[in-house]
Design a protein around this nucleic acid. Sequence first.
RNA 1: GCCGGGGUGGUGGAACUGGUAGACACGUUGGACUUAAAAUCCAAUGCCUUUAACCUGGCGUGCGGGUUCGAGUCCCGCCCUCGGCACCA
Length: 1018
Amino acid sequence: MYNHKEVEAKWRKYWADNKQYATPEGVTKDNKYYILPQLPYPSGSGLHVGHAEIYIACDIYSRFQRQQGKKVLQVMGWDAFGLPAENYAIKTNIHPRINTDTAIDNFREQIKSLGVSVDWDREVGSHNPDYYKWTQWFFLLMYEQGLAYRKKQTVNWCDSCKTVLANEQVIDGHCERCDSEIELREMEQWYLKITDYADKLIEGLDRVDWPEESIKRQRDWIGRSTGIDIDYEVVGKDFKVTCFTTTPVNFGATFIVVAPEYEYVDQLITDDNREIVEKYIEEAKAKTDLERQVDEKQKTGVFTGSYAINHLTGEQIPIWVADFVLASFGTGAVQGCPAHDERDFEFAKKFDLPIYRVVEGKDGETDKVINPDTETFDQVKIGKGIKRKMINSEMFNGLPFDEGMKATMDYFEEKGWGKRVVNYKLRDWSVSRQRFWGAPIPMLHKPLSEEEKALNELYNNNPYTVISFHAWGSSPTSRYHGWLGEQLAAEGIEYFNPELPNAENPLLSEWLDTMASEVGDKETKNSVVIGRSLGCWSALKFAENHKVRKLILAAPTVPTPSRFSSWQEAAEEKTYEMLVNFIGGDAGNLDIEKVKENVGELVVFLSTDDPYVELEETEKWFRTEFPYARIARYREVGHFDLDEFPGILEEIKQPVALDLKPLQVGDLPVILPDDVDFKPTGQSPLTYSDKFQDGIEKRYGEGWKREVDTLDTFMCSSWYFFRYLDPHNDEAFASKEALENWMPVDFYLGGPEHVTGHLLYSRFFTKVLYDAGYISFDEPFLVHRHQGIILGPDNRKMSKRWGNVINPTDVVNNYGADTIRMYEMFMGPLEQSKAWSEASVQGVRRFIDRIYKFSTTNEFANQLDSATEAELHKTIKKVTADTINLKFNTAISEFMKFINYAEKAQVTKEQWETFLVLMAPYAPFLTEELWQGSFGHSDSIHMQEWPKHDDSLLTQQSVTIAVQVNGKLRDTVEVEFDSDQEAVESAVKDSEKVQKYLENAEPKKVIYVKNKIINYII
RNA sequence: GCCGGGGUGGUGGAACUGGUAGACACGUUGGACUUAAAAUCCAAUGCCUUUAACCUGGCGUGCGGGUUCGAGUCCCGCCCUCGGCACCA
């Protein structure tokens, strides 16, 4: 009898003592294989059979790849921050670290009992300071790249969890964790600009091997739509209402609707309507998202009293407010084209607004005015693929709908009434949480002094100017300067971009004189000063003597030691001379303290492949000299010789935040304090810690305090797969070498519920790292698959409520780890959901016992039996193919077929051992016990090379042919392999069953498929 | 409502590019072993029909149609189910 408990304990110890699954050295791009099981949340209720399924599948694959000669990385870690632990802590008044660590210890033991070949020396936990130090570093990276910002806006608030949630964490208007209904609140929060990456996130999906539906879901979630923003004049007002539309059927635009939160809504309301409109807006804002959707077809809305002018018809069309318009999508205002948009149709019907047909009806209707009581929307709607023609649209008449839309957009752009734009459903990712058990946000705040308040007012509510220093050998029109001038002019921003003298052999003093005379005695306090290349030095010198709002340095040629020496040594001796000449004398001495004092914010742009500015050294110089400089890295833009540079335009427009300061990397981690009352109040618990703010003012200046919100735990899990590569690194989140060798992940297994959350975020993080030049790939997970849900024996989702929860550790104890491994894989395809069956578990255990019994009691043959050899090779071929394709269920059925065969056949010991090697990834304990124990090998079966099949052994001697008459199976005949038609037909002559049907007629036609079927047509 | 996956025996599920549907397992039934039970081993097992029996014939992959010598697999139209999104202009 096979004693699984004894055997498993023995080999677990042996593998651990021998460090058998330590990550191998000597990894290259070609021999590495990175297998990633999704990071678990270590919940207090222990491991679930669904978790087990992931780890088992990944482990089988890992062991298989190892035996195929790959160097495998398989690691485990914990997504350890989060609400359940905190809620439990609140209930028990025990610190969440304690219950989290207990849960982790429990999880670890449970996972180890499954026999997974994980390198436990690389285990990570997101709640450990040496991990969350780098989560915080990622936040700072986002901040420096201009991708983290604070904004006050409507957020999803879960009142039960007392925290804000990201859109991705709201399911059907309910909290994904506790299921309570989500409220909308106005709050100031930290956001990550994932929307900047919308296009890159869509584009990358073409390059990954993921389940088709997951790719589609991500694409839909990002929700790219192309259309046009149309500016409408408002009668009697001096501002315009801009509507976003994808289908500008504008001859049919008969009204405009804006969201209750629309920014100019107040100015649209006329006195007569004020009371009623304001009441409506107030009520709408009080509603939850869910409440707004309750009566989908029951449109509500009120007329503001204002009118806009339809460009094409010249008609005045009323502007309404209605809550079906979303403030967060497009411009928050839409044009009502009721004939061809269902919502607009409902709205127009309810409020008796005109409906004009501008596309031919379903049955060829052409009359312009539609009566919604007699004609349904179905008659007029323009569905996908419907190619009806435009009518009642003057110059667009007769065009097919698609072309009509294009023509209209062209026309509007030509007339300057609109501009083509792209909109996304994707929203920026809100990452602040008002909870305790998370990574503190590494930022500082302070209340503004009176003086600063005035400055802030100046920065934010007054026109500002832009001053630009071009580079050596440049001109005001070269590089991006000319483009920038146009862009700024279009926005009405004043731009000083003079020609600096002697561009080929410049002198700093001359450049500064020119700039001084250009600027004259204008106040520069609210100016953005830009330098590029050598112009940066001038810009810095300028800032020595002028107060400026912001200093932007692109490709700064600052005098780092190697900079000068390399120029000195380089062939370009003239360059060195010129530089010395330029900076020469006192002019070259920069008073850094003065610059710091004068500059509101210093922003540095570096390129990862700048031939003149060494990236890391320059970065270090700025971090030393200007600790609070924000350094953004751009991927491969050379010396910023760009014709267009949208990044700089965005940066110019970004206001300076005087009340914020990022921590420096050297000050990380911001440790989560222990002296905290974590009862939720809606205020972050860190607010109440005394220790947390200790020494901050002393170190950073009066008034400064740490940010008390913590980071969304999804930030922790957005980069964990990098940490596994180099988990003990103090200098970086992972070394360059480790990143280059191991990434990207070759195989990632996880649940489909993370498609629009974790997987999107992880891709975003990776792309940001790529753009900042830290890595050379921009998709983290090449191959991704989902495991299906394992249901309870009653076919319901496992839950305490139904009492149908299976604890994997019980199964391990009762039947053994190999049994649960093989059972969970044998249940069905990995990606499919399937119900637990105790009887089937026993069936698998029976199979294990049969293998054990056969191995230990069978009398092995001395002579090789060729039929057995053929069977073995057939098994090798099928198991290999199935394992590669993750069809573990059919691989296991192949094992069963082979034991069924072997029990009745002559099998040599070597043949049987080969079979055991095939089974090793699936049943690691049993096979190891037999290999080393019963068969006396002195090394591990898991280090054995994967067997290869020999195709020549697979050719069968004879083959069974199906004989059909008129497509119906009547008999089968045995013939020699590869027989021709004649031989088969003669064999068929001996079949009475078939002859019975062929007796009376000569077949009209005979179809023969070699080695498969023969079909007589009579 | 829109988008996507899936409907195969009593059950979980097999079936390569169209070529013997139901591999493998569970369950069930019968038998062997046993005083007995469990365990184990052997045999049968899609449904219907027919036969005392070997057998005969038919029907079968959600439903209806089509293409084909031949369809679980391809095409058209439905039904059911699971999952996602949900006023995204």
